[in-house]
């Protein structure tokens, strides 16, 4: 009785005419322990279909949430840069004043001051040069060393004789 019905279903199944519901019926029938002996060969097929539904994709997806570029932060950054810039401006001026310490705005004053300091430098320089005069003594010393040449001449003659 049941097997007759199943046979009819199988025929339509092979022609691709069964509905999903009827196919469920077939799967259910063939998942039983015992089926009609002449239909035995269908068993692994339906068992395979059912077993295959259990296979799962287990790999982890490397999904990263892309955060869209937020222009608000650009504004915040701009404000920070501007305030920092303003804040830094004052110390820069102060350091320039320090650097410009001792300069003159009037060229005449500047000239006087420069000649004064140059005079002072040349005074000290001359003093230094006069002490270097002692170096002449050294030159004298080297001149007397010239006598050593005479010794060399004589030794040269001696060596010649030996040869």
């Amino acid at each position: 009785m049941v097997s007759n019905n199943i046979e009819a279903l199988l025929k339509r199944y092979e022609n691709g005419e069964t509905s999903l519901k009827e196919e469920q019926q077939l799967k259910k029938y063939f998942s039983q322990e015992t089926v009609a002996p002449h239909l035995e060969m269908y068993k692994p097929m339906f068992a395979y279909f059912l077993a295959n539904q259990q296979e799962h994709f287990t790999k982890q997806l490397p999904i990263k949430t892309k955060t869209a570029f937020n222009y608000k932060w650009l504004a915040v950054a701009a404000v920070v840069v501007l305030t920092l810039g303003y804040y830094m401006k004052t110390p820069v001026v102060a350091s320039y004043n320090e650097y410009a310490y001792g300069t003159y705005d009037n060229p005449e004053d500047a000239l006087n001051e420069v000649t004064k300091s140059l005079n002072m430098i040349s005074n000290h320089f001359n003093k230094g040069v006069s002490t270097v005069g002692y170096l002449n003594e050294v030159n004298k010393g080297t001149a007397t060393l010239g006598y050593l040449n005479e010794i060399e001449n004589t030794t040269g003659i001696i060596f010649k004789n030996h040869q």
């Binding site: 092979e14 691709g16 005419e17 060969m41 692994p44």
Partner: peptide, 18 residues
């Protein structure tokens, strides 16, 4: 075309299984 392919496949499977 789907139905035809399905029918052919099922027939082949049945034949080979037999």
């Amino acid at each position: 075309a789907v139905r035809v392919a399905l029918s052919r496949a099922r027939k082949t499977i049945r034949e080979k299984l037999t």
